[in-house]
């Protein structure tokens, strides 16, 4: 038995040797990191979001650095379902035994269902994460004047409908990733739970913007982009706290996790697992250092299981 087996985590049947995952969009298709870290030591790998057809992505500049973070508007550039199934997924499975969760994106409910049906047949993936919260992709809602449409998970009813339809299409563990760009995230969380989601993951990136004062133009070609990094951690923490106090299904937390302390904060608001996002860009060792760090913390405080790591009562 692994000496850190007390970190073993089972989330809706996704069996992970530890509760530290890598977040979608920050880890490519996994193989990009193989020379830098031992992929087998990760709790789980969530792939870059896959769409039915390949997507070119947005024009550059796609990223810009901000205070304690960065904005991105990559626009879901990806190889598309076919190439993913033929090349990327088998390639990743060949180099690691770590559970692979596939992030799924789309512009219509039907697209999500089609991809899910194709993923059912692979037999090699541990779960599906529905990316219904990418700020750079929009769903055109009827009878709305909102230019560019809305993000799926900004609407309770669309969230419910989408998740229900995908739920009917698969028995695989189903994770639904939520957007922070909402007034009350617990409403969306409830809708996803009611629709049959096994797990929620949050937060995707809050929308932001930066201006280049030299050129007097938006810093991103897409004008707006998703903000990530330590700058968003307090927002993520507050939202995870709200959601874990609302739903019964487990929550995977992400948003600016850069080190063990950050991760512990999320566990203390009852996250079942955490995912490292842009932390991978700054230091690819981050998830593995957090695994070590959590183990040390639990030992030092004589806490047997992560589950026992909750907030204490009173001030």
């Amino acid at each position: 038995m692994n000496k850190k087996s007390f970190l073993f985590t089972d989330i809706a049947g996704i069996k992970m040797k530890n509760p530290v995952m890598v977040a979608s969009g920050t880890f490519g298709y996994g193989e990009e990191y193989k020379e830098l870290i031992d992929l087998d030591k990760l709790g789980a790998i969530v792939t870059k979001t896959i769409t039915l057809k390949p997507r070119a992505g947005n024009p550059p500049p796609r990223i810009v650095e901000t205070a304690a973070g960065m904005l991105n508007a990559v626009g879901l550039q990806n190889v598309g379902l076919d190439v993913f199934l033929k090349e990327k997924l088998p390639g990743l499975k060949k180099i690691t035994s770590t559970p692979v969760i596939v992030s799924v994106g789309g512009e219509s409910i039907l697209e999500y269902v089609k991809i899910t049906e194709a993923l059912n047949k692979t037999g090699t993936i541990a779960g599906i994460e529905l990316n219904i919260s990418c700020p750079n992709i929009r769903f055109q809602k009827k009878n709305t004047k909102l230019k560019g449409g809305i993000i799926f998970s900004q609407d309770e009813k669309i969230t419910y409908k989408l998740v229900s339809r995908v739920r009917k299409a698969t028995k695989l563990p189903l994770i639904v990733k939520l957007s922070p760009n909402v007034t009350d995230i617990t409403l969306i969380a409830r809708a996803a739970e009611k629709a049959g989601a096994d797990v929620l993951s949050l937060i995707n990136t809050p929308l932001g913007m930066a201006v280049d004062v030299t050129t007097r133009k938006p810093a991103l070609a897409n004008i707006t982009g998703g903000l990530s990094g330590p700058a968003i951690k307090p927002i993520a923490l507050r939202m995870v706290w709200e959601v874990t106090n609302t739903v019964k299904i487990p929550v995977i937390a992400m948003g600016g996790i850069m080190n063990t302390t950050d991760a512990l904060e999320f566990f203390m608001v009852k996250a079942a697992a955490v995912a490292v996002g842009v932390g991978n860009f700054i230091n690819p060792q981050t998830p593995l250092e957090i695994v070590e760090g959590i183990a040390d913390y639990l030992k030092r405080h004589r806490i047997k299981r992560l589950k026992d790591l909750s907030l204490l009562k009173g001030r």
Partner: peptide, 23 residues
């Protein structure tokens, strides 16, 4: 040269447009 985050091909931040694609 382009704005870059990870440097290892994961973030897709440093995109440049080239010919002969499928788009």
């Amino acid at each position: 040269e382009e704005y870059m985050a990870c440097g290892i091909g994961a973030c897709l931040g440093c995109a440049v447009k080239v010919k002969n694609g499928h788009f």
